[in-house]
Design a protein around this nucleic acid. Structure first.
Lengths: 210, 210
DNA sequence: TAGATTGTTAATCGATTAACAATC
DNA sequence: TAGATTGTTAATCGATTAACAATC
């Protein structure tokens, strides 16, 4: 069975991104040392992560970049197509709905919904924005398992309830609302403002020292 | 000195968000039990976090919501104004540049830059998009310490170098590029696609079991 | 061979949780 | 008083790192 630690799991996207970049310029192998320096983590930790992924390196050369990248993709299920709806067609929803990079990871946006009559019917990339009232029916029609939630905080829980009832089992939550869902439904909270808070704390302490 | 664990630090934005919501509806106290249930973490952990923040609760009532919120804001420096530039005026840059919620945390966007002649001169919210060639001069003029980077991956490192040379010491990085910066410069990587990867892994394992 | 590198084990470090005393 | 709750200590769990053997 595929099992790695939570902490290692969080490193996989970062490994993946470096591997893709190196593969793009034709490199074949990368050492744990190099990976550790780019990511600013310990070298042994990289080797441990590789061992957890059941990837073996070559003495004197390091790890095969393509093997490793494919292994991460397999592990994360990036080779399957995941169809998703973008719920909320504001700037952030638009950014996510039109981001072409997602294709590479198997994420396919199949619809964009909003509640604003002015937006409904307009085009976002190749998608016509449809009414939020069609959320449940679209989920059922396409057997959607994942929604990308970019609506105002006040609407987040209600729309999640509707989506879950219609069959969704994963919510990528870009709202600051802590969502309540039944067991078996997975939430990923982006809470973008959290990133700023970390930097704000740093900036405050730098200036305190001056 | 203000010192809490890394893990506790990551919980602060989530506490803060709940406290704001409860304060908005007029609640005065919240127990560690309630916080732990909303966030789906252990009750003792909440109390330990409070102790780390040097916040004391009241027996039988819990923690004062406003005291706790203010303490978190103080700790994170959210009461100071942080001026920042949005570098890259695509959909994501636009979303971040126009997000009104940032004000509440002291984040003030003072400019938006892009390299596309079609975009330069257009308005994003109250900001006129200016040429990326003015990056260094704008940083110096406003004594900017933080940039919000939403440019294509290929441009990320070069623009970071320019910004750091001009005086920036914090980069909120929404590109997938791992940035290389001198000591003393803090990077926060958003790597949005990482959130999808976590969900993709979950979805894969759910369907494998069927 | 010497050097570079992987892979593994044991030690250490950090975070979470259980247990329970204190108190309103 | 009994019940609800905080606050703290010690135990446990999980993650990282140091040390070092193996090997190309």
């Amino acid at each position: 069975m595929d099992r790695i630690s939570k902490a290692a799991f969080r490193r996989l996207p970062r490994y993946h991104q470096i591997l893709s970049a190196y593969e793009g310029v034709g490199r074949e192998y990368i050492s744990s040392r190099e990976l550790s320096e780019i990511l600013d983590i310990n070298e042994t930790l990289v080797r441990k992560d590789m061992a957890d992924l059941q990837i073996r390196g070559k003495q004197n050369q390091g790890y095969s970049i393509s093997t490793l990248r494919l292994r991460i993709e397999e592990f994360l299920g990036l080779q399957d197509i995941t169809e998703a709806l973008v719920v909320g067609a504001g700037h952030l929803g638009t950014a996510l709905a039109t981001y072409v990079g997602f294709e590479q990871y198997g994420l396919k946006i199949v619809g964009v919904l909003d509640n604003d009559p002015e937006r409904i019917g307009s085009m976002i990339g190749t998608h016509e924005v449809v009414s939020i009232f069609r959320l449940a029916s679209m989920i059922q029609k396409h057997a959607i398992k994942l929604i990308i939630l970019t609506v105002p905080k006040a609407a987040a829980q209600e729309l999640t309830d509707i989506a879950v009832k219609a069959g969704v089992i994963a919510v990528w939550n870009f709202t600051p609302q802590e969502l309540n869902v039944p067991d078996g439904v997975r939430i990923r909270n982006e809470q973008i403002v959290g990133g700023f808070m970390a930097l704000s704390h740093y900036l405050k302490n730098v200036s305190d020292k001056e």
